[in-house]
């Protein structure tokens, strides 16, 4: 059984200060990295002889508009079946330079996950073979999951944010 402590120490030894912000929300090892190191990090986890974190569960994006310089976060969830070990990796990006290398070379499943993230958040995955919209129509000229596009009709006055806790 692989422990969070063991993996965290192994990654710190290998990547030094390129991995940081270690956390364990609800027992799931969460850490941050940089976009320069994300591919080597994913590859290291995948090809590690004993850990074998070979399964990419999910890629998604989150936006924090108030976090200047780090408005977008790309979240990777990985899973090692051999040890039943899950890990979450986050990479923060700034809105002005919203690029991150693609993981399609490592995991075939990353293809659509990244297209979806691009579709909804506009995060550009450099080197992606086919970075087009996937669920929305191609003519759409904005990225709808961004917080600047409120869900409700802006002209309505009876639905104020305070009622919804926002």
């Amino acid at each position: 059984m692989l422990t969070n402590q063991e993996v965290a120490e192994g990654l710190l030894e290998k990547f030094g200060d390129q991995v940081f912000d270690f956390e364990e929300p609800y027992g799931l090892l969460t850490l941050s990295s940089t976009r320069e190191e994300i591919l080597p990090l994913l590859e290291y986890l995948r090809d590690h002889k004993t850990w074998q974190v070979i399964f990419l569960t999910d890629i998604t994006g989150v936006q924090y508009p108030d976090n200047k310089g780090q408005e977008f976060v790309v979240v990777y969830h990985l899973h090692s079946f051999v040890h039943n070990f899950r890990i979450r990796i986050k990479v923060a990006l700034s809105e002005a330079d919203i690029h991150i290398p693609t993981a399609t070379g490592l995991f075939a499943s990353a293809n659509w996950m990244e297209r979806e993230t691009f579709d909804f958040f506009g995060i550009l995955f450099d080197g992606h073979p086919n970075l087009r919209r996937i669920l929305n129509i191609e003519e759409m000229d904005y990225h709808p999951m961004r917080k600047e596009y409120p869900l409700e009709d802006a002209t309505r006055e009876d639905k104020i944010d305070a009622l919804f806790g926002r």
């Binding site: 999910d58 998604t60 989150v62 979240v75 075939a108 499943s109 659509w112 919804f164 806790g165 926002r166």
Partner: peptide
């Protein structure tokens, strides 16, 4: 995948849908 910021609704909710991922 649920992120809550302490409000009444999720801050971000993402569904990992198996068909979406394997259909590719």
């Amino acid at each position: 995948y649920l992120i809550s910021d302490g409000g009444r609704a999720p801050y971000r909710l993402h569904f990992r849908r198996p068909s979406f991922i394997y259909y590719q």
